[in-house]
Simulated assay, not measured.
Amino acid sequence: MTTADRYAGFAVREARGVSPVYERLSLAVSRDEEILGLLDTLPEAKRQPNLLFGVVRLLGGPVEEPDAFHDHVVEHWAAIAAEIRVRATQTNEAGRCALLLPLLAHLPQPLALLEVGTSGGLCLYPDRYSYRYGEHTIGGGEPVLDCELAGREPPVGIPHVVWRGGLDLNPLDVTDPADVAWLDALIWPEHAHRRARLRAAAAIAAADPPLLVRGDLVDDLPALAAQAPADATLVVFHTSVLYQVAAARRHTFTEVVRGLPGHWIASEAPDVLRYEGLPEPPDASFHNVLALDGTPLAWTKGHGQAMTWFA
């Protein structure tokens, strides 16, 4: 896939109907030979739209108008490229807990949660948030996470979590304003509700910090899992993480996680974790597949805004 194809595909499959600003900008970049040439000087993994747009926003650049974006990127490319090289997309969307809740609420309680690719750890607090599936509300805390749910009844309770651990190559600290600024920059421009959600979820994590470990998802996962209390059900989970991992390393990770006690929840793109016999997704927009212990269960939207069960 060329860089132009990547940006055109992002506009159509991920941004359309979700972020008009990023749809317009991605299409413009896909036709901008000068910016495409600059992007192609970066390692392939560093050319993704969310990373470029997030870094430009972090550094105070414009993303609303393609012409202004082009001029800014060309003029400030040295600083932008340097920042891209040391960063990764670490979108820490608490809304994804709404995708996890139907599974977490029905596993043997209490739970020990271990998130791979945890970023700042905001998805380690599914028991502290509230949820709204249509007219059905669960919990009484803030923020309230809205999710369109089709194909099954909403969960009826909140899980009991007794341990929280996260593993990341570069874990973020939600008490550090610079780290929170990066998380904010990764939120798409129009999504004020997600920005407010980030602040509320970060306050919860800062008040009761999880155990966040800097490490590799293969080499360091068993040691962290061994720290979970033996009298709790271990749940290793990840959402929209493995696309940043080489295919061979993904395969090794799945072998390691299957060998751990407890359960494994994944929400990843179907070309990242492949399953046989998947039904057609509910529409042409981008979807992940929610799976428990390797069994696919539902199509999910990337920020936790919708899920469609087929199992």
Rank of each mutant, 00 (worst) to 15 (best):
S19N: 07
L51A: 03
A266W: 06
L260I: 04
D173W: 00
L273W: 13
P20A: 03
P171N: 04
V86N: 00
D176Q: 08
D184V: 06
T89R: 09
R16N: 09
P171I: 01
R152E: 13
A225E: 12
L212M: 13
F69E: 03
S240Y: 06
Y22I: 00
L198G: 01
A185R: 10
R87I: 06
V241P: 09
R47I: 07
R96W: 00
Q48V: 14
A202M: 10
L186W: 03
S267I: 15
H303C: 11
P43L: 08
T3P: 06
V161D: 11
D176H: 13
R214E: 13
E142L: 15
G54P: 13
G277K: 08
W299T: 05
V256Y: 07
D220L: 05
L242Q: 01
P222F: 06
T252H: 14
T3H: 08
T91W: 04
E33T: 14
E268Y: 08
I35M: 12
D173S: 05
L260M: 09
T118D: 14
E64Y: 00
L42E: 01
F53S: 09
A68F: 06
V12R: 15
P154Q: 05
H303G: 09
H238R: 10
Y275I: 11
D5H: 13
A284K: 08
A112W: 05
V213Q: 11
L114D: 02
A28L: 03
A230I: 06
A78T: 15
L211S: 10
S30G: 10
L52Y: 09
D293I: 11
P209D: 01
N288Q: 14
Y131G: 00
A4G: 12
V12C: 00
G165H: 08
L124Y: 11
D173Y: 07
L145H: 03
